[in-house]
Amino acid sequence: MKNVSFVLNGKRVSCEVQDRELLLHTLRERFSIKSVKEGCGIGECGTCTVLIDNEPHYSCLTLASKVNGHDVKTVEYLGDADHLHPLQKAFIESGAVQCGYCTPGMLLSAYSLLMKNGNPGENEIKEAISGNLCRCTGYIQIVEAIRDAAGLCKCKS
């Protein structure tokens, strides 16, 4: 077991983790953050995406011990049902959410992009979400949502 301390969605946290424990399971089971989901489990689908130091990572291939001393963000950082982030609102308004399974990961990849680039072009958006698969929308609505949100929101670290 190892003690890890990190910042989770803006709050300092610490917990004991197993050596072989994946960040995905730490977040789901120790912190009850169920928005981070296991899809393929081998770093291909992106539904387990979290931001580590504001950059997207696959939590299904990240040992929990690796985040000691780092900053971790999940979609809960953006907003909740009563206080939606403009990016979340744009996803709803553009029809970028269908089954919703990919949405938290998709939002985080988009958020990371908007933190670095306040006015991304279509290709930059497509590149940024290329590690997140969506099998419902065909991506067009997601790209539109991110483009619409870009002008409206400030993505803070």
């Binding site: 770093g43 995406t49 580590i52 950059e55 997207p56 990572h57 940024a128 590690g131 997140n132």
Partner: peptide, 9 residues
């Protein structure tokens, strides 16, 4: 290589 996530890791 891979995706943005893979390249960050």
């Amino acid at each position: 290589i891979g995706s943005p996530q893979i390249r960050n890791m």
